[in-house]
Amino acid sequence: MIETTPFAAELPWSRLKEMVRMLSKKELMSRFHRVSARHKADGSLVTAADRAMQQAVELFLHEQWPEYAFLGEESECETQNRALAQRQGCWILDPLDGTTNFIHGFELFSCSLALAISGEVVLGIVYDPVRDEIFAARRGLGAELNGQPLGISGTARSLDSSLALVDYKRLPCSLAASLVEAPPFASQRNLGSVALDWCWMATSRADLYLHGGQKLWDYAAGQLIFSEAGGASCTLDAEPVPANSMEPRSAVAAGTSALLGLWMAHLDASQ
């Protein structure tokens, strides 16, 4: 186990979580159901809510901890790469994870904030403002939901009894087709928010997870929360999901190591 950093253990934890909650209500919920969007260069959508939330969070963090760099989804690529290279500490923010859901009035979106020190994510906060659920974790100190300890329990023991969260759009075509034609699980969902995917897995609301390519700001906080709750995960290449890199990462996860082994074996045979 990676040792807990002094910062992760001693920071004003309640104040940091309350900041995410307060600004999400102010900047995101105040714009929900009345928002316009534009396409970014990569084809993804961005709204005034994304930009306002990032600006507000960045300002707060800079005032409190100016020594740490800041990497936001809506930052320029050069700024993102420069921030990630700062090994002494880097905040990683997705101001609005689930922008397409948000634009369409679909009530599944979140704000995700993580802190990486020396390339390792040491804390994560994911807030769902619709349900007022704040998921959080500090490395080595466990995960929590609304201040109560969070641990995976009651997960399925077999693939055919599992509920799976699968994002087909980013999977290799052959693998996606195989899962559609002969699904090994009982049923499948796609939330449209990577951060909430990880957190809902951490609460045992689903048993299996598969995503073909998520960005650092998508998974940094959620994957830590899931891991600290006791879940097991890896990439499609059987590597650790977290990486100190801007390159998209695939993600395979399950509530237990045994179930992950079954899931990976099926995916390997399907590719």
Rank of each mutant, 00 (worst) to 15 (best):
I2Q: 15
E18H: 15
S24E: 02
K25M: 14
M29Q: 09
R31L: 06
F32N: 00
R34E: 11
R34K: 13
A37C: 12
L45W: 15
A49K: 04
Q55K: 14
A56C: 04
W65A: 09
A69S: 14
A69G: 07
F70L: 09
G72I: 05
S75Q: 04
E78S: 06
I92H: 09
I92N: 04
P95S: 10
G98Q: 10
L108P: 00
L108W: 05
F109C: 03
F109R: 02
L123K: 01
P129T: 04
V130E: 06
E133P: 03
R139Q: 13
L141K: 10
Q148E: 13
Q148S: 11
S158V: 05
L159S: 07
A164L: 05
A164D: 04
Y168M: 12
P172W: 01
C173F: 11
L175E: 02
S178F: 05
E181T: 09
A186W: 15
R189G: 01
A195P: 12
W200N: 00
S204M: 04
S204W: 02
G213E: 13
A221I: 08
Q223P: 03
I225K: 00
F226L: 13
G231L: 04
A232H: 15
D237L: 11
E239T: 07
N244R: 08
A254C: 10
T256K: 06
A258R: 11
L262R: 13
L267D: 00
A269Q: 10
S270D: 00
Q271D: 02
Q271Y: 10
